[in-house]
Simulated scan of single mutants.
Amino acid sequence: MTSSGPPGTRDSGPAAGTTRSWPAGWWYLPLTILTAGLAAWVPFLHAGVVLGSARLRWAAAAYGAVLAGLFVCASTAPVDAQGTAVGTAGTVLPTIAGTGWLVLIPVACAHQWAVRRRVARGRGGAPEPGLSRALAARSRRTTARRLAESDPLLARDLRIGRPDLARDYDDGGLVDLNNAPAATIARLCEIPLPAAEDIVGARRDSGFSSVDELLVTVALPVSAWDRIRDRGLTLSA
């Protein structure tokens, strides 16, 4: 039996022989805790460089400035020859420094935890499949809506907003509120079928010029408005 690990270790399971790597940014919190907050700014600088984020680099500068201010408070507090605090400043400044340090460490760690996840995704960490699909569909809806606004005839040829018809173009889940049947509107906008039938009834004369006009014309639950705006478009009949 062979082993690819160091002496005294064994391979086990299907992952034997593979190299395990530490997750990106794993050292952020340990560095901050082990240095008692003195290096709290370093993870933000690293994340800012990795992600190309000016905001995170500014966060690093802000944490550094706070640390410098706390150090000044602690080191400039007046004391006498025996090291006893002198006057109000001698009492208040060390209190500010101590309290600030106690607050800084958990705040920085919580912030770093969120940043570490961003770094992991930015360095190849796989996002949640469901999130990826939802974001991809949103992007397709945005593209399809822009196409429909700039070229309505092409949009009709591509059957944008008409999942009830045979088509090849993926519009990300849009629904044409001026032409789609009530069942399709109800399904994509996640509204009751009677509400979708009200939309169909109200559009019979000339249709809607915009989704906002529909929302003013038809009595629909306010809770459904955002979903209708996200999924709906109004092509001419």
Rank of each mutant, 00 (worst) to 15 (best):
P7W: 02
R10T: 15
S12F: 14
G13D: 15
G13W: 05
A15P: 02
A16I: 14
A16Q: 10
G17H: 06
W22K: 12
A24W: 03
G25P: 00
W26D: 07
Y28S: 08
L29D: 05
L31Y: 02
I33N: 06
L34H: 03
T35P: 06
G37L: 07
L38D: 04
L38F: 08
A39V: 07
A40Y: 12
W41G: 00
A47K: 00
A47G: 10
A47T: 04
V49S: 13
V49T: 13
L51N: 09
G52E: 11
S53T: 09
A54D: 14
A59G: 06
A60N: 07
Y63M: 11
A65Y: 04
F71D: 08
C73Y: 12
C73V: 06
A74I: 07
S75C: 05
P78R: 02
D80L: 03
Q82E: 04
G83I: 13
G83V: 13
T91Q: 15
V92W: 02
V92E: 10
L93R: 15
P94F: 14
P94G: 03
I96G: 13
G98L: 00
G100W: 13
L102S: 11
I105W: 13
P106M: 03
A108Y: 02
C109A: 14
A110F: 10
A114W: 04
V119P: 10
V119C: 02
A120I: 06
A120S: 07
R121G: 01
R123S: 14
G124F: 11
A126G: 09
P129M: 02
A136K: 11
A137V: 06
T142S: 04
T143D: 02
A144P: 04
R145P: 14
S150V: 08
S150Y: 01
D151R: 15
D151A: 08
D151K: 13
A155H: 09
R156V: 03
D157S: 12
L158S: 02
R159A: 01
I160N: 00
R162K: 01
R162P: 00
D164M: 01
A166S: 02
D168A: 13
Y169N: 04
D171I: 04
D171H: 12
V175S: 02
L177A: 15
A180V: 06
P181D: 11
I185R: 14
R187H: 09
C189K: 11
E190N: 01
I191W: 09
P194R: 05
D198I: 05
D198C: 07
I199Q: 03
V200L: 06
V200N: 03
G201P: 05
G201N: 05
R203Q: 13
R203H: 06
D205L: 08
D205A: 08
D212Y: 14
D212M: 10
L214E: 07
V216M: 10
A219H: 05
V222R: 03
W225M: 02
D226P: 01
I228P: 01
G232V: 00
L233C: 00
L233I: 05
T234M: 04
L235F: 09
L235Y: 08
S236K: 12
A237L: 15
A237P: 05
A237I: 12
